[in-house]
Nucleic acid binder design. Structure first.
Lengths: 177, 177
DNA sequence: TGGTACATGTAACATGTTACATGATTAG
DNA sequence: CTAATCATGTAACATGTTACATGTACCA
């Protein structure tokens, strides 16, 4: 995304444009916003955000404003950016990808001492339990909009399913937790 | 992974080594095996497999045998490969990453005409329903080992949770299915 | 004999990750 | 004054994706 061509937005860049519909934001703000609002089902890093922003600035999809305090540099959506976002979101979303290293460890579990496997499982179970609690907290605090509610609902169901998986294994025949 | 150093295996390469414990295999076979056994929670492509194989061959973790019919080139695990795999699997597995484009579309659902969103949801629901059926078929056909059973169980629970999410939304307040 | 499935591989590019360098501002 | 946090960015590298080029063997 250097020259200026439309060049098919990627989902990460498109999401940044999505957030910029709510008003100008700096890279820093976008990182925080994205992590809070889509971070649970779309991973991204700070350096990616800056890269996409400068790429999109080069392509004319966003425009950098004056630097403010602490060098904050706000980006705002251009008309071209708005169109690019609209074109992106009108396309059918692709299939999801999950990459779950723990499941690899489980699949090759025959190569792991049972107590070590149990340790791994316990650690991960804890992470998921905390994530579920966090989601429940957000639910209790009240949800922004119906769309945010829908994605939160996904997270709740996902984490519950994962916890049930852990507990089912512990109760069953894999050495666990 | 060019030189010869141990150089920290990645999960994809390590999984290939894991499969090679069951005997020598060609790149082609490894692609098929990996897609069947870990493809549901660890995506990989053909060209990645060949790249990792030649990298690992350079690092001495696998050795290519004589080319057979149809240019088939079997790779077998070396002692160094066995050790590298053991070192990899002894490390605590990292956190999982989910990247679910449909959820992005849902989060930005305000920018999508309701009937189009419903169309996307219906398409994805169908994919997940079919995946669940496929997993149930595998379960009915009988499972290879307890570890494979555990990962299959995860898949079943995941797909059921996703379907319940779709159906919950359809019954609730998002325009759907 | 022609199409399909098998089989290997490269090239080019896009995306993701980690580490680092630099400096401003604020809170204690 | 000093440590933590805010803020931007680059560099280097690892990984993932897509497209293509090449050829073999089987089967109808």
């Amino acid at each position: 995304m250097a020259g200026g061509r439309p060049a098919e937005l990627n989902a990460t860049a498109a999401s940044l444009l999505g957030f910029l519909h709510e008003g100008p934001m700096t890279g820093w703000d976008l990182v925080a916003t994205a992590q809070r609002r889509i971070g649970d089902f779309w991973s991204l890093t700070q350096s990616q955000v800056y890269r996409e922003l400068s790429g999109m600035a080069g392509a004319g999809l966003v425009e950098a404003g004056e630097r403010g305090a602490r060098d904050r540099r706000p980006y705002r959506l251009t008309e071209a950016g708005r169109r690019a976002f609209a074109a992106w979101i009108a396309r059918p979303p692709g299939p999801e990808t999950i990459r779950f290293p723990l499941l690899l460890t489980v699949l090759f579990g025959g190569h792991v001492p049972p107590e070590r496997l149990a340790e791994f499982m316990a650690t991960h179970r804890k992470v998921h339990a905390e994530r579920l609690e966090e989601y429940e907290r957000r639910l209790a605090e009240g949800v922004p909009d119906r769309y945010g509610a829908a994605t939160l609902d996904f997270g709740l169901r996902y984490e519950r399913a994962v916890l049930e998986w852990f507990d089912g294994l512990a109760a069953g025949d894999l050495p666990l937790c």
